[in-house]
Design a protein around this nucleic acid. Structure first.
Length: 477
RNA sequence: GUCCCGUUGGUCUAGUGGUUAGGACUCAGGAUUUUCAUUCCUGCAUCAGGGGUUCAAUUCCCCUACGGGAUACCA
Protein backbone atom coordinates (compact mmCIF):
# COMPACT_ATOMS: atom_id res chain seq x y z
CA UNK A 1 0.00 0.00 0.00
CA UNK A 2 2.69 2.47 0.90
CA UNK A 3 6.43 2.49 0.47
CA UNK A 4 6.93 3.70 3.96
CA UNK A 5 9.54 1.89 6.03
CA UNK A 6 7.86 0.45 9.10
CA UNK A 7 9.69 -1.77 11.54
CA UNK A 8 8.61 -3.25 14.80
CA UNK A 9 9.97 -4.47 18.05
CA UNK A 10 7.69 -7.25 19.22
CA UNK A 11 8.69 -8.58 22.61
CA UNK A 12 6.73 -11.02 24.64
CA UNK A 13 6.28 -9.73 28.16
CA UNK A 14 8.21 -12.28 30.16
CA UNK A 15 8.96 -9.96 33.03
CA UNK A 16 12.02 -8.04 31.97
CA UNK A 17 13.82 -6.73 28.92
CA UNK A 18 16.65 -9.00 27.85
CA UNK A 19 19.84 -7.29 26.63
CA UNK A 20 19.53 -9.24 23.41
CA UNK A 21 16.06 -7.81 22.97
CA UNK A 22 17.46 -4.40 23.74
CA UNK A 23 19.82 -4.76 20.84
CA UNK A 24 17.02 -5.94 18.57
CA UNK A 25 14.92 -2.97 19.65
CA UNK A 26 17.85 -0.65 19.10
CA UNK A 27 18.57 -1.94 15.61
CA UNK A 28 14.93 -1.54 14.67
CA UNK A 29 14.85 1.92 16.17
CA UNK A 30 18.05 2.98 14.45
CA UNK A 31 16.97 1.68 11.10
CA UNK A 32 13.68 3.55 11.36
CA UNK A 33 15.50 6.76 12.30
CA UNK A 34 18.06 6.30 9.60
CA UNK A 35 15.54 6.02 6.80
CA UNK A 36 12.85 8.23 8.26
CA UNK A 37 10.49 5.32 8.91
CA UNK A 38 8.31 4.34 11.81
CA UNK A 39 9.27 2.28 14.83
CA UNK A 40 6.39 0.27 16.20
CA UNK A 41 6.11 -1.51 19.49
CA UNK A 42 3.85 -4.53 19.65
CA UNK A 43 3.31 -6.74 22.65
CA UNK A 44 3.25 -10.44 21.83
CA UNK A 45 1.27 -11.73 24.75
CA UNK A 46 -0.39 -14.74 23.24
CA UNK A 47 0.87 -17.25 25.74
CA UNK A 48 -1.56 -17.18 28.60
CA UNK A 49 0.45 -19.71 30.56
CA UNK A 50 3.38 -17.37 30.72
CA UNK A 51 1.50 -14.30 31.79
CA UNK A 52 3.58 -12.22 34.18
CA UNK A 53 2.02 -9.48 36.20
CA UNK A 54 3.44 -6.04 35.56
CA UNK A 55 5.69 -7.27 32.79
CA UNK A 56 4.36 -4.87 30.19
CA UNK A 57 4.67 -1.91 32.48
CA UNK A 58 8.21 -2.90 33.28
CA UNK A 59 9.06 -3.32 29.63
CA UNK A 60 7.69 0.08 28.74
CA UNK A 61 9.57 1.75 31.55
CA UNK A 62 12.85 0.11 30.67
CA UNK A 63 12.49 1.06 27.04
CA UNK A 64 11.76 4.60 28.11
CA UNK A 65 14.74 4.85 30.39
CA UNK A 66 16.88 3.63 27.53
CA UNK A 67 15.54 6.48 25.43
CA UNK A 68 14.09 4.32 22.70
CA UNK A 69 10.86 6.08 21.93
CA UNK A 70 8.41 4.31 19.68
CA UNK A 71 6.07 5.91 17.17
CA UNK A 72 3.14 3.57 17.59
CA UNK A 73 2.33 1.10 20.29
CA UNK A 74 0.77 0.54 23.70
CA UNK A 75 -0.18 3.73 25.52
CA UNK A 76 0.79 5.80 22.51
CA UNK A 77 -1.71 4.18 20.18
CA UNK A 78 -1.69 4.53 16.41
CA UNK A 79 -3.78 3.71 13.37
CA UNK A 80 -2.91 0.05 13.35
CA UNK A 81 -3.88 -0.94 16.87
CA UNK A 82 -4.53 -2.54 19.16
CA UNK A 83 -0.87 -3.20 19.80
CA UNK A 84 -1.44 -6.06 22.18
CA UNK A 85 -1.90 -9.41 20.50
CA UNK A 86 -4.15 -10.55 23.31
CA UNK A 87 -6.63 -7.91 22.14
CA UNK A 88 -6.58 -8.99 18.53
CA UNK A 89 -8.07 -12.46 18.70
CA UNK A 90 -11.10 -11.52 16.61
CA UNK A 91 -8.82 -10.36 13.87
CA UNK A 92 -6.92 -13.61 13.92
CA UNK A 93 -10.12 -15.67 13.98
CA UNK A 94 -11.29 -14.05 10.80
CA UNK A 95 -8.18 -15.11 8.93
CA UNK A 96 -8.15 -18.54 10.49
CA UNK A 97 -11.64 -19.09 9.18
CA UNK A 98 -10.48 -18.03 5.77
CA UNK A 99 -7.54 -20.43 5.89
CA UNK A 100 -9.84 -23.26 6.97
CA UNK A 101 -12.38 -22.45 4.27
CA UNK A 102 -9.76 -22.38 1.59
CA UNK A 103 -8.20 -25.64 2.74
CA UNK A 104 -4.94 -24.01 3.69
CA UNK A 105 -5.22 -25.13 7.29
CA UNK A 106 -6.95 -27.95 9.15
CA UNK A 107 -8.18 -28.91 12.57
CA UNK A 108 -6.00 -31.37 14.44
CA UNK A 109 -7.59 -33.38 17.24
CA UNK A 110 -4.48 -35.17 18.41
CA UNK A 111 -3.81 -34.58 22.07
CA UNK A 112 -0.51 -33.19 23.39
CA UNK A 113 0.12 -36.48 25.17
CA UNK A 114 -0.27 -38.52 22.02
CA UNK A 115 2.00 -36.18 20.14
CA UNK A 116 4.66 -36.15 22.83
CA UNK A 117 4.65 -39.91 22.95
CA UNK A 118 4.93 -40.30 19.23
CA UNK A 119 7.63 -37.69 19.01
CA UNK A 120 9.64 -39.41 21.68
CA UNK A 121 9.31 -42.79 19.98
CA UNK A 122 10.52 -41.36 16.72
CA UNK A 123 13.32 -39.43 18.35
CA UNK A 124 14.68 -42.54 19.99
CA UNK A 125 14.63 -44.40 16.69
CA UNK A 126 16.30 -41.48 14.97
CA UNK A 127 13.26 -40.92 12.80
CA UNK A 128 11.55 -37.77 11.65
CA UNK A 129 9.86 -36.14 14.65
CA UNK A 130 7.49 -33.91 12.75
CA UNK A 131 3.75 -34.25 13.06
CA UNK A 132 2.64 -37.12 10.86
CA UNK A 133 -0.24 -35.17 9.35
CA UNK A 134 -2.81 -37.71 10.44
CA UNK A 135 -5.60 -35.15 10.90
CA UNK A 136 -4.95 -33.66 7.49
CA UNK A 137 -6.78 -36.65 6.10
CA UNK A 138 -9.88 -36.41 8.26
CA UNK A 139 -13.06 -36.26 6.25
CA UNK A 140 -15.99 -33.99 6.99
CA UNK A 141 -18.00 -36.48 9.02
CA UNK A 142 -14.99 -37.41 11.14
CA UNK A 143 -14.38 -33.76 11.83
CA UNK A 144 -18.02 -33.25 12.75
CA UNK A 145 -17.90 -36.25 15.07
CA UNK A 146 -14.98 -34.73 16.94
CA UNK A 147 -16.67 -31.37 17.01
CA UNK A 148 -19.85 -32.98 18.24
CA UNK A 149 -17.92 -34.64 21.03
CA UNK A 150 -16.50 -31.25 22.00
CA UNK A 151 -13.03 -32.63 21.42
CA UNK A 152 -10.28 -30.12 21.83
CA UNK A 153 -8.35 -29.24 18.73
CA UNK A 154 -5.63 -27.03 17.37
CA UNK A 155 -5.46 -25.59 13.88
CA UNK A 156 -2.47 -26.42 11.77
CA UNK A 157 -1.08 -24.94 8.62
CA UNK A 158 -0.68 -27.18 5.59
CA UNK A 159 2.98 -27.04 4.72
CA UNK A 160 4.06 -28.26 1.26
CA UNK A 161 5.33 -31.81 1.49
CA UNK A 162 8.12 -31.58 -1.01
CA UNK A 163 10.43 -29.16 -2.73
CA UNK A 164 12.21 -26.30 -1.06
CA UNK A 165 11.92 -22.60 -0.29
CA UNK A 166 14.56 -20.02 -0.92
CA UNK A 167 14.36 -16.55 0.48
CA UNK A 168 16.58 -13.56 0.81
CA UNK A 169 17.67 -12.35 4.21
CA UNK A 170 19.42 -9.00 4.54
CA UNK A 171 22.08 -10.44 6.81
CA UNK A 172 22.33 -14.04 5.56
CA UNK A 173 21.54 -13.33 1.94
CA UNK A 174 20.23 -16.45 0.21
CA UNK A 175 18.81 -19.10 2.51
CA UNK A 176 17.19 -22.34 1.42
CA UNK A 177 15.13 -24.85 3.40
CA UNK A 178 13.67 -28.12 2.22
CA UNK A 179 9.93 -28.22 2.91
CA UNK A 180 10.10 -31.73 4.27
CA UNK A 181 11.91 -30.32 7.28
CA UNK A 182 9.08 -27.99 8.14
CA UNK A 183 6.30 -29.11 10.45
CA UNK A 184 2.60 -28.44 9.93
CA UNK A 185 2.73 -25.46 12.20
CA UNK A 186 0.10 -25.01 14.88
CA UNK A 187 -1.58 -21.69 14.24
CA UNK A 188 -4.23 -21.74 16.92
CA UNK A 189 -3.83 -23.46 20.27
CA UNK A 190 -6.59 -25.41 21.88
CA UNK A 191 -7.30 -22.48 24.19
CA UNK A 192 -8.22 -20.49 21.11
CA UNK A 193 -5.18 -18.25 21.27
CA UNK A 194 -2.97 -17.88 18.25
CA UNK A 195 0.63 -19.04 18.30
CA UNK A 196 3.44 -16.60 17.70
CA UNK A 197 3.65 -17.63 14.08
CA UNK A 198 0.06 -16.84 13.20
CA UNK A 199 -0.23 -13.62 15.15
CA UNK A 200 3.12 -12.43 13.98
CA UNK A 201 2.40 -12.86 10.31
CA UNK A 202 -1.06 -11.36 10.48
CA UNK A 203 0.07 -8.40 12.53
CA UNK A 204 3.13 -7.69 10.46
CA UNK A 205 0.95 -7.62 7.39
CA UNK A 206 -1.88 -5.60 8.89
CA UNK A 207 0.52 -3.16 10.48
CA UNK A 208 2.27 -2.84 7.14
CA UNK A 209 5.64 -3.81 8.49
CA UNK A 210 8.22 -3.47 5.75
CA UNK A 211 11.21 -5.09 7.48
CA UNK A 212 11.23 -7.82 10.07
CA UNK A 213 14.39 -7.34 12.11
CA UNK A 214 14.70 -9.98 14.80
CA UNK A 215 17.02 -12.54 16.34
CA UNK A 216 18.53 -15.42 14.45
CA UNK A 217 16.59 -17.94 16.49
CA UNK A 218 13.72 -17.13 14.14
CA UNK A 219 15.54 -17.89 10.95
CA UNK A 220 14.32 -21.43 10.74
CA UNK A 221 10.73 -20.29 11.23
CA UNK A 222 10.81 -18.19 8.12
CA UNK A 223 9.64 -20.98 5.81
CA UNK A 224 6.42 -21.49 7.75
CA UNK A 225 5.84 -17.76 7.85
CA UNK A 226 6.38 -17.55 4.11
CA UNK A 227 3.95 -20.38 3.64
CA UNK A 228 1.39 -18.48 5.68
CA UNK A 229 1.84 -15.27 3.74
CA UNK A 230 1.33 -17.27 0.61
CA UNK A 231 -1.77 -18.97 1.96
CA UNK A 232 -3.26 -15.61 2.84
CA UNK A 233 -2.26 -14.12 -0.48
CA UNK A 234 0.04 -11.56 1.10
CA UNK A 235 3.43 -10.23 0.20
CA UNK A 236 5.97 -10.95 2.93
CA UNK A 237 8.14 -8.20 4.40
CA UNK A 238 11.90 -8.12 4.02
CA UNK A 239 13.70 -10.34 6.49
CA UNK A 240 16.70 -9.44 8.59
CA UNK A 241 17.94 -11.95 11.15
CA UNK A 242 20.40 -10.73 13.72
CA UNK A 243 23.30 -12.82 15.01
CA UNK A 244 22.85 -14.01 18.56
CA UNK A 245 24.35 -12.60 21.73
CA UNK A 246 26.44 -15.26 23.42
CA UNK A 247 27.63 -16.32 26.86
CA UNK A 248 31.39 -16.60 27.25
CA UNK A 249 31.04 -20.31 26.42
CA UNK A 250 29.41 -19.24 23.14
CA UNK A 251 25.97 -20.56 23.93
CA UNK A 252 22.98 -18.30 23.50
CA UNK A 253 23.12 -15.56 26.15
CA UNK A 254 21.15 -16.79 29.11
CA UNK A 255 20.08 -15.82 32.56
CA UNK A 256 21.94 -18.73 34.10
CA UNK A 257 25.32 -17.28 33.33
CA UNK A 258 24.82 -13.76 34.67
CA UNK A 259 22.65 -10.74 34.24
CA UNK A 260 20.62 -10.45 31.11
CA UNK A 261 17.92 -8.05 32.22
CA UNK A 262 18.45 -4.48 31.17
CA UNK A 263 16.92 -3.28 34.41
CA UNK A 264 19.55 -5.22 36.37
CA UNK A 265 22.32 -3.49 34.48
CA UNK A 266 20.63 -0.17 35.07
CA UNK A 267 20.30 -0.89 38.76
CA UNK A 268 23.96 -1.72 39.01
CA UNK A 269 24.79 1.65 37.65
CA UNK A 270 25.55 1.06 34.04
CA UNK A 271 24.46 4.17 32.20
CA UNK A 272 21.84 3.85 29.49
CA UNK A 273 24.28 5.50 27.11
CA UNK A 274 26.86 2.81 27.85
CA UNK A 275 24.41 0.00 27.37
CA UNK A 276 23.24 1.32 24.04
CA UNK A 277 26.76 1.98 22.84
CA UNK A 278 28.02 -1.38 23.99
CA UNK A 279 25.19 -3.42 22.65
CA UNK A 280 25.07 -1.71 19.26
CA UNK A 281 28.64 -2.83 18.63
CA UNK A 282 27.78 -6.44 19.27
CA UNK A 283 27.03 -7.40 15.73
CA UNK A 284 27.32 -4.13 13.92
CA UNK A 285 30.22 -1.85 13.16
CA UNK A 286 30.76 1.13 10.90
CA UNK A 287 33.86 1.11 8.74
CA UNK A 288 36.84 2.23 10.78
CA UNK A 289 37.74 2.36 14.42
CA UNK A 290 35.18 4.56 16.12
CA UNK A 291 33.73 2.90 19.18
CA UNK A 292 32.02 5.69 21.05
CA UNK A 293 28.71 6.82 19.66
CA UNK A 294 25.84 8.93 20.87
CA UNK A 295 22.36 7.80 19.92
CA UNK A 296 22.14 10.64 17.42
CA UNK A 297 25.41 9.61 15.81
CA UNK A 298 24.15 6.07 15.56
CA UNK A 299 20.97 7.20 13.87
CA UNK A 300 23.15 8.53 11.09
CA UNK A 301 25.79 5.83 10.97
CA UNK A 302 23.66 2.71 11.28
CA UNK A 303 22.99 0.40 8.40
CA UNK A 304 21.50 -3.07 8.13
CA UNK A 305 24.02 -3.98 5.47
CA UNK A 306 26.85 -3.86 7.95
CA UNK A 307 25.38 -6.28 10.44
CA UNK A 308 27.71 -9.21 11.09
CA UNK A 309 26.78 -12.80 10.48
CA UNK A 310 28.34 -14.41 13.52
CA UNK A 311 27.22 -14.27 17.13
CA UNK A 312 29.05 -12.12 19.63
CA UNK A 313 30.07 -12.86 23.17
CA UNK A 314 28.74 -10.41 25.70
CA UNK A 315 31.97 -9.43 27.42
CA UNK A 316 31.34 -7.94 30.83
CA UNK A 317 34.94 -6.75 31.14
CA UNK A 318 34.60 -4.54 28.15
CA UNK A 319 31.21 -3.32 29.29
CA UNK A 320 32.78 -2.32 32.60
CA UNK A 321 35.57 -0.51 30.85
CA UNK A 322 33.17 1.31 28.61
CA UNK A 323 30.95 2.30 31.50
CA UNK A 324 34.02 3.66 33.26
CA UNK A 325 34.72 5.76 30.20
CA UNK A 326 31.19 7.13 30.20
CA UNK A 327 31.37 7.80 33.91
CA UNK A 328 34.52 9.87 33.47
CA UNK A 329 33.60 11.67 30.30
CA UNK A 330 30.00 12.57 30.96
CA UNK A 331 29.16 15.91 32.55
CA UNK A 332 29.76 15.66 36.29
CA UNK A 333 26.34 17.03 37.18
CA UNK A 334 24.68 14.30 35.14
CA UNK A 335 26.71 11.62 36.85
CA UNK A 336 25.90 13.27 40.16
CA UNK A 337 22.20 12.83 39.46
CA UNK A 338 22.61 9.20 38.41
CA UNK A 339 24.66 8.55 41.53
CA UNK A 340 22.36 10.22 44.02
CA UNK A 341 20.01 7.32 44.53
CA UNK A 342 22.88 5.09 45.63
CA UNK A 343 23.74 7.57 48.38
CA UNK A 344 20.13 7.76 49.45
CA UNK A 345 19.80 3.98 49.48
CA UNK A 346 22.95 3.70 51.57
CA UNK A 347 21.60 6.26 53.99
CA UNK A 348 24.38 8.74 53.31
CA UNK A 349 23.12 12.27 53.82
CA UNK A 350 24.40 14.78 51.39
CA UNK A 351 24.81 18.06 53.27
CA UNK A 352 27.01 19.98 50.92
CA UNK A 353 26.24 19.81 47.22
CA UNK A 354 29.64 21.09 46.15
CA UNK A 355 31.43 18.51 48.23
CA UNK A 356 29.08 15.83 47.01
CA UNK A 357 30.04 16.50 43.42
CA UNK A 358 33.68 16.58 44.38
CA UNK A 359 33.25 13.19 45.92
CA UNK A 360 31.45 11.82 42.88
CA UNK A 361 34.19 13.23 40.74
CA UNK A 362 36.96 11.34 42.49
CA UNK A 363 34.81 8.22 42.74
CA UNK A 364 34.04 8.11 39.01
CA UNK A 365 37.74 7.65 38.30
CA UNK A 366 37.95 4.59 40.45
CA UNK A 367 34.76 2.70 39.74
CA UNK A 368 33.21 1.02 36.75
CA UNK A 369 29.60 1.09 37.72
CA UNK A 370 27.68 3.46 39.90
CA UNK A 371 26.65 0.96 42.54
CA UNK A 372 30.29 0.89 43.61
CA UNK A 373 30.10 4.54 44.54
CA UNK A 374 28.83 3.93 48.05
CA UNK A 375 31.65 1.58 48.83
CA UNK A 376 34.02 4.28 47.74
CA UNK A 377 32.18 6.99 49.64
CA UNK A 378 31.84 4.95 52.78
CA UNK A 379 34.92 6.37 54.55
CA UNK A 380 33.44 9.84 54.25
CA UNK A 381 30.15 8.91 55.81
CA UNK A 382 30.76 6.26 58.38
CA UNK A 383 33.08 5.63 61.27
CA UNK A 384 36.51 4.37 60.34
CA UNK A 385 37.63 0.95 61.38
CA UNK A 386 41.22 -0.16 61.57
CA UNK A 387 43.07 -3.41 61.24
CA UNK A 388 45.89 -4.21 63.67
CA UNK A 389 48.66 -3.16 61.31
CA UNK A 390 46.88 0.14 60.69
CA UNK A 391 46.72 0.74 64.44
CA UNK A 392 50.43 0.19 64.67
CA UNK A 393 51.07 2.88 62.09
CA UNK A 394 48.65 5.28 63.74
CA UNK A 395 50.12 4.69 67.16
CA UNK A 396 53.75 5.19 66.23
CA UNK A 397 55.62 8.01 67.86
CA UNK A 398 56.06 10.07 64.73
CA UNK A 399 52.42 9.62 63.75
CA UNK A 400 51.27 10.89 67.10
CA UNK A 401 53.54 13.94 66.85
CA UNK A 402 52.23 14.52 63.35
CA UNK A 403 48.56 14.31 64.34
CA UNK A 404 49.05 16.65 67.28
CA UNK A 405 50.79 19.14 65.03
CA UNK A 406 47.93 19.03 62.54
CA UNK A 407 45.25 19.39 65.16
CA UNK A 408 47.00 22.35 66.71
CA UNK A 409 47.32 24.07 63.40
CA UNK A 410 43.90 23.28 62.05
CA UNK A 411 41.94 24.32 65.10
CA UNK A 412 42.50 28.01 64.53
CA UNK A 413 42.47 27.98 60.77
CA UNK A 414 39.39 29.49 59.13
CA UNK A 415 39.21 27.05 56.22
CA UNK A 416 40.95 23.97 54.95
CA UNK A 417 41.75 24.94 51.42
CA UNK A 418 44.32 23.26 49.24
CA UNK A 419 46.93 25.93 49.75
CA UNK A 420 46.68 25.65 53.50
CA UNK A 421 46.92 21.88 53.51
CA UNK A 422 49.89 21.83 51.21
CA UNK A 423 51.55 24.41 53.39
CA UNK A 424 50.98 22.24 56.41
CA UNK A 425 52.37 19.27 54.57
CA UNK A 426 55.53 21.25 53.84
CA UNK A 427 55.79 22.45 57.39
CA UNK A 428 55.47 18.87 58.61
CA UNK A 429 58.58 18.06 56.65
CA UNK A 430 60.48 21.18 57.62
CA UNK A 431 59.48 21.59 61.24
CA UNK A 432 58.95 17.98 62.31
CA UNK A 433 61.29 16.25 59.93
CA UNK A 434 58.50 13.85 59.08
CA UNK A 435 58.29 12.96 55.42
CA UNK A 436 57.42 10.34 52.81
CA UNK A 437 56.22 7.09 54.33
CA UNK A 438 55.98 8.64 57.76
CA UNK A 439 53.86 11.45 56.49
CA UNK A 440 51.28 10.50 53.91
CA UNK A 441 50.15 7.01 54.93
CA UNK A 442 49.41 7.93 58.55
CA UNK A 443 47.48 11.02 57.54
CA UNK A 444 45.41 9.22 54.98
CA UNK A 445 44.85 6.40 57.41
CA UNK A 446 43.67 8.79 60.09
CA UNK A 447 41.29 10.68 57.85
CA UNK A 448 40.22 8.19 55.26
CA UNK A 449 40.85 4.82 56.82
CA UNK A 450 43.20 3.56 54.16
CA UNK A 451 46.76 4.18 53.09
CA UNK A 452 45.59 4.49 49.53
CA UNK A 453 43.03 6.91 48.27
CA UNK A 454 42.36 10.42 47.09
CA UNK A 455 44.69 13.34 47.63
CA UNK A 456 44.85 14.72 51.14
CA UNK A 457 43.54 18.22 50.34
CA UNK A 458 40.57 16.67 48.59
CA UNK A 459 39.81 14.36 51.47
CA UNK A 460 39.94 17.21 53.97
CA UNK A 461 37.90 19.51 51.83
CA UNK A 462 35.11 16.97 51.50
CA UNK A 463 35.31 15.97 55.15
CA UNK A 464 35.19 19.59 56.36
CA UNK A 465 37.03 20.95 59.37
CA UNK A 466 34.88 19.57 62.14
CA UNK A 467 35.14 15.99 60.94
CA UNK A 468 38.84 16.31 60.23
CA UNK A 469 39.49 17.33 63.80
CA UNK A 470 37.26 14.61 65.11
CA UNK A 471 39.13 11.98 63.16
CA UNK A 472 42.49 13.19 64.30
CA UNK A 473 41.28 13.15 67.88
CA UNK A 474 40.06 9.60 67.43
CA UNK A 475 43.53 8.37 66.59
CA UNK A 476 45.32 10.53 69.13
CA UNK A 477 46.27 8.72 72.28
C1' G B 1 19.82 -37.56 14.61
C1' U B 2 18.05 -33.97 10.86
C1' C B 3 17.89 -29.06 8.74
C1' C B 4 19.80 -24.13 8.75
C1' C B 5 23.51 -20.48 9.94
C1' G B 6 28.33 -19.18 11.17
C1' U B 7 34.20 -19.17 11.86
C1' U B 8 40.10 -12.41 11.59
C1' G B 9 44.36 -12.63 18.52
C1' G B 10 41.10 -15.11 24.87
C1' U B 11 36.87 -11.22 23.71
C1' C B 12 34.43 -7.09 20.43
C1' U B 13 35.95 -5.85 15.64
C1' A B 14 38.40 -2.95 10.91
C1' G B 15 40.34 -4.52 6.45
C1' U B 16 42.23 -6.44 1.56
C1' G B 17 43.27 -10.92 -4.65
C1' G B 18 49.71 -8.48 -3.44
C1' U B 19 49.29 -4.73 3.81
C1' U B 20 55.01 -5.19 8.69
C1' A B 21 46.71 -7.74 8.82
C1' G B 22 44.70 -1.95 11.91
C1' G B 23 41.84 -0.48 16.48
C1' A B 24 39.54 -1.62 21.37
C1' C B 25 38.99 -4.78 25.92
C1' U B 26 41.82 -8.18 28.89
C1' C B 27 46.85 -9.50 30.39
C1' A B 28 52.32 -8.20 31.18
C1' G B 29 56.03 -4.33 31.63
C1' G B 30 57.12 0.88 32.04
C1' A B 31 56.30 6.43 32.71
C1' U B 32 53.53 10.13 35.48
C1' U B 33 51.32 10.49 40.60
C1' U B 34 53.28 11.19 48.12
C1' U B 35 49.69 6.40 47.66
C1' C B 36 45.54 4.27 45.02
C1' A B 37 42.90 5.34 40.72
C1' U B 38 43.06 8.03 36.23
C1' U B 39 46.17 9.07 31.97
C1' C B 40 50.14 7.88 28.61
C1' C B 41 53.82 4.52 26.33
C1' U B 42 55.57 -0.43 25.10
C1' G B 43 54.78 -5.57 24.63
C1' C B 44 52.32 -10.65 24.12
C1' A B 45 48.86 -12.84 20.86
C1' U B 46 44.96 -13.71 15.16
C1' C B 47 43.10 -14.66 9.40
C1' A B 48 40.06 -22.93 12.03
C1' G B 49 42.30 -27.08 8.80
C1' G B 50 42.76 -29.25 3.88
C1' G B 51 42.10 -28.90 -1.19
C1' G B 52 41.33 -26.02 -5.52
C1' U B 53 41.08 -21.21 -8.91
C1' U B 54 45.14 -17.62 -9.62
C1' C B 55 51.53 -15.14 -11.14
C1' A B 56 49.50 -14.25 -6.12
C1' A B 57 44.59 -15.99 -1.42
C1' U B 58 43.19 -14.24 5.13
C1' U B 59 40.13 -12.31 1.00
C1' C B 60 36.85 -16.33 -4.40
C1' C B 61 35.02 -21.82 -4.70
C1' C B 62 34.63 -26.83 -2.47
C1' C B 63 35.30 -30.26 1.51
C1' U B 64 36.30 -31.22 6.63
C1' A B 65 36.41 -29.73 11.60
C1' C B 66 34.48 -26.87 15.25
C1' G B 67 30.67 -23.64 17.23
C1' G B 68 25.72 -22.09 17.38
C1' G B 69 20.43 -22.05 16.28
C1' A B 70 15.95 -24.67 15.14
C1' U B 71 13.48 -29.04 15.56
C1' A B 72 6.72 -27.23 21.33
C1' C B 73 -0.61 -26.23 21.65
C1' C B 74 7.12 -20.84 24.21
C1' A B 75 8.14 -16.63 22.17
Amino acid sequence: MSNEIRVRFAPSPTGYLHVGSLRTALYNYLYAKKVGGKFILRIEDTDQTRYVNGAVKNLLETLESMGLEYDEGPEKGGEYGPYFQSKRTEIYNKYVKELLDHGKAYRCFCTPDELDKKREEHRVKGLDTRYDGRCRKLNESEINDHLGNNDKFVIRLKIPQEGEVTFYDIVREKVTFPWNMVDDQVLVKSDGFPTYHLANVIDDHLMEISHVIRGEEWLSSVPKHLCLYEALGWKPPKMCHLPLLLNSDKSKLSKRQGDVAVEDFLNKGYLPETLLNFVVLLGWHAPGDQEFYTLTELEKAFSLKRINKSGSVFDLEKLNWMNGQYLRNTDLKVIGEYARKYFIDAGYHITNEKHYLELVDIARNRIHKLDEVTEFAKPFFSKLEYAEEDKAILGSESSQILFKFWVDNIIDSPELNEEFINGLLNRSVEELGIKGKELYPPLRLALYGSEHGPELPTIMDILEKEKVLLRFKNVLK
